[in-house]
Write a protein that binds this DNA or RNA. Structure first.
Length: 741
DNA sequence: TATGGACATC
């Protein structure tokens, strides 16, 4: 648009009167009242901004430092802000003054790339005579907080102390916020206590920091102290306090805080109402949340999403879905809330269906969070085609591989059986946090590559990444699946003494598993007897599993009864004990157990196997004949049976849950197992060059394991089967687990 | 000439 089309500017008298209006202070001229600068303040789009800029250049106003600064300020953080434009304006100023530097630093400090604020500051120190003032520091400290750059912030703190701003309220408040963001609450508190004067923001920064850092109790304590010191809390204080209550899960306290807000006339902003909603949702009271939601005059997308999450949290998916459909608009966060709810509540198929819907409707663009949820759903289903497609999508759209996404990709490839791809992802990134390392260790663990898991753990230490509780669970499970008894024992013993991670129930369960599998049942029992915490179901379950492997009835019975005391409905316990009895031919005991299960209304979880063909996930249950190709599948099964028998295979009847008199019925029952159905389907529908990938919800049965080994040889096919414990790669007649599982 | 603290999805 040409300048002449903008009457507001053209009407200015500047064209003909190039002498700006100015005032003089300390021998410097200021143009604060210049009409063009007043125009600048009212400027509302970028075209206007450029026109004013052009005019300032033409009449020479731009060479006035005050006016140029004003232009940067508008360019950098008004409604028409563009950091690139602000930078260009700044670059044109021959000698920027401190105000200009600050304006640019401030603008970068709240941009996508806060590191630029620090870089500009360094430029200022080296390339100008200006020194930071009380405005510069808060911007720089804010940038450091966004970057969680602890050492940078500490350096700035040092500069502040040496400067004349060591007791400036704004500077110190920003330091409290910074240390809180970095998780250094002792430092935050030290600054807080050292302040000569504190205002409500000082208290808020401390309270909010503690609440977000997971110190809900401390945050609430501080709020009560604030009250005691007669500092009036405002709406921001309450938002912090409510988030502490939300983490506390104490509904009574939550209600009393809501009442406090009403009684003390705290400004009820939309954000505050949203925080109350969130608190009720997290404390599990949809009644309280809905009451407020219905009363709220103004709602935004966050209010709706919070309610949506609330319904999924209480398991009411139909309410969640209908709320989603009535939302005034669905942004990506709302879609993500729905997708992640399905994915995390054992409904990965629905998660993928919702993702499909999102793509068809094209109303919102998938972001990193969406992809993390979808990858996790793929991992659960073993859907490697879709998972791989997501990986391509990430690369194609230039989506930044943050640690969350990296972890999800590694987890997906590992759980879909392609460990090499997982490693490729792992090696392709520079940024690896504890979750990335732990996911890769878990990948090695589930594929039975224990030594490599330990090797990776050593590399992780070289990289100075501190292991956490999950890292050790994965590491110990790696030892367990590879039979690395001494390493497992050693790692367990070092957990607390060397790495400061106190062993939890999961770690004890892994240790018992390691010892038990290797046949050291007495030592495993000894570990349980000397545990400082009470042995959970997982610990007794591990012992029971080991007893099944080694056919130990005595310890097995003890483990089972302890397990059933903790989890009376645990069907797995009955099945394992029943396998132990069957193994030693105690069919009387087997049928006794069956009767007990029937009488207590406990049903064995049905075996279910998934197999992905051309991006579609097919599901098989025991004895399933619902598949469209069922007839062909059973024909294939017959053929397999004949070929297996011809090479001397004998079905393992100890894998049955009951004594069936007739031999052929026993054999048939074994052939109906879901993993065998899936294998038969894989053989007829997957090209011989591709591995057959199957995911089973329970542990693979011994008979299916033996059969799969033979099938891999007889049909010259690679079969990759994931059960609920680990992977089995069948190839050329043997399995990667070396029959140790 | 100006600054700070906040709610939903992994």
């Amino acid at each position: 648009m040409a300048i002449s089309c903008t009457p507001a500017i053209n009407n200015l008298p500047l064209n003909r009167h190039p002498t700006p209006v100015s005032i003089t202070v300390n021998n410097e001229r200021y143009f604060a009242d210049h009409p063009l600068l007043l125009q600048l303040d009212r400027c509302s789009d970028s075209t206007q901004l450029k026109q004013i800029h052009a005019r300032m250049l033409r009449i020479g106003l731009f060479s006035d430092p005050y006016s140029a600064s004003k232009l940067i300020q508008v360019a950098a953080y008004s409604e028409v802000s563009s950091i690139q434009y602000a930078q260009k304006v700044f670059d044109q100023i021959p000698r920027p003054n401190l105000y200009s530097w600050n304006a640019l630093i401030r603008s970068y400090a709240s941009s996508q790339e806060p590191v630029n604020a620090l870089l500009i500051f360094i430029k200022m120190l080296h390339g100008s005579d200006e020194l930071p003032n009380k405005f510069t520091f808060p911007f720089l400290i804010k940038a450091s907080a966004l970057l969680s750059a602890l050492s940078v912030g500490k350096g700035l703190h040092g500069m502040v102390l040496k400067s004349e701003f060591g007791s400036d309220l704004f500077v110190l408040n920003s330091l409290i916020h910074f240390y809180g963001e970095c998780g250094c609450f002792d430092m935050a508190y030290r600054v807080f206590m050292s302040m000569p004067k504190r205002d409500v923001v000082s208290w808020n920064s401390m309270i909010v920091g503690l609440a977000q850092g997971g110190y809900a109790e401390e945050s609430l304590d501080l709020f009560f102290r604030m009250e005691g010191e007669n500092v009036r809390p405002n709406d921001v204080t309450m938002i912090g306090v409510l988030s502490a209550c939300a983490k506390n899960l104490d509904l009574e306290l939550a209600r009393s805080m809501h009442l406090y807000i009403r009684r003390n006339g705290i400004k009820e902003s939309l954000v505050l109402n949203n925080a109350i909603l969130d608190m009720y949702v997290k404390c599990g009271s949809m009644e309280d949340a809905k009451r407020l939601f219905d009363k709220m005059g103004v709602k935004d997308i966050i209010s709706w999403t919070t309610m949506l999450v609330g319904y999924t949290k209480v398991g009411d998916f139909s309410a969640a879905r209908s709320l989603f459909d009535t939302m005034p608009c669905q942004d990506i966060a709302a879609w993500n809330a729905l997708i992640s709810a399905y994915e995390q509540n054992g409904n990965p198929k629905e998660a993928l269906a919702t993702f499909n819907e999102l793509q068809l409707r094209k109303e919102a663009k998938p972001d990193a969070v969406t992809l993390v949820c979808v990858l996790s759903a793929c991992a659960q289903l073993g859907a490697i085609d879709l998972g791989g497609w997501i990986h391509v999508y990430i690369n194609k759209h230039g989506i930044n591989l943050n640690c969350h996404l990296t972890t999800a990709l590694i987890d997906m490839y590992s759980k879909c059986g392609d460990l090499e791809k997982a490693l490729e992802v792992f090696h392709s990134v520079d940024n690896r946090d504890v979750f990335v390392w732990s996911a890769m260790i878990a990948g090695f663990a589930m594929h039975g590559r224990g030594r490599e898991a330990i090797g990776l753990f050593l590399k992780m230490q070289e990289a100075k990444v501190k292991p956490n509780s999950v890292t050790f669970t994965n590491l110990l499970s790696a030892c367990s699946h590879s039979g690395l008894v001494d390493s497992g024992r050693g790692i367990f013993n070092q957990m607390e003494s060397v790495f400061g991670v106190v062993p939890g129930v999961q770690h004890y369960a892994c240790l018992v598993d390691i010892l038990g599998r290797a046949g050291n049942l007495e030592e495993a029992l000894d570990v349980i007897d000397n545990m400082p915490i009470s042995a959970g179901a997982s610990v007794w379950g591990a012992l029971l599993g080991a007893c099944r492997l080694h056919g130990n009835i005595d310890i097995g019975e003890r483990a089972c009864s302890n397990l059933l005391e903790l989890e009376p409905q645990n069907d797995g316990a009955y099945v394992l004990l029943s396998n132990i009895y069957a193994k030693s031919g105690r069919w009387d005991k087997v049928s006794e157990l069956r009767k007990l299960m029937r009488n207590s209304g406990i049903k064995k979880e049905p075996g279910c196997s998934l197999i992905e063909v051309d991006g579609n996930v097919h599901e098989f249950l025991v004895g399933d004949n619902t598949h469209p190709l069922s007839k062909n599948i059973y024909l294939k099964l017959d053929e397999i049976a004949t070929r297996l028998t011809s090479v001397g295979y004998v079905p393992m009847k100890s894998q049955l849950l009951q004594l069936v008199e007739e031999e052929h019925v026993q054999e048939q029952a074994l052939y109906l197992h879901s993993e065998k159905l899936a294998m038969a389907f894989g053989l007829i529908s997957i090209s011989p060059s591709q591995p057959i990938r199957i995911v089973k919800n329970l542990r693979i049965c011994g008979d299916c394991h033996a059969a799969a080994k033979l099938i891999s040889k007889l049909y010259n096919r690679e079969i990759v089967l994931r059960d609920c414990y680990r992977f089995h790669h069948f190839k050329g007649g043997s399995c990667s687990c070396m029959d140790y599982w």
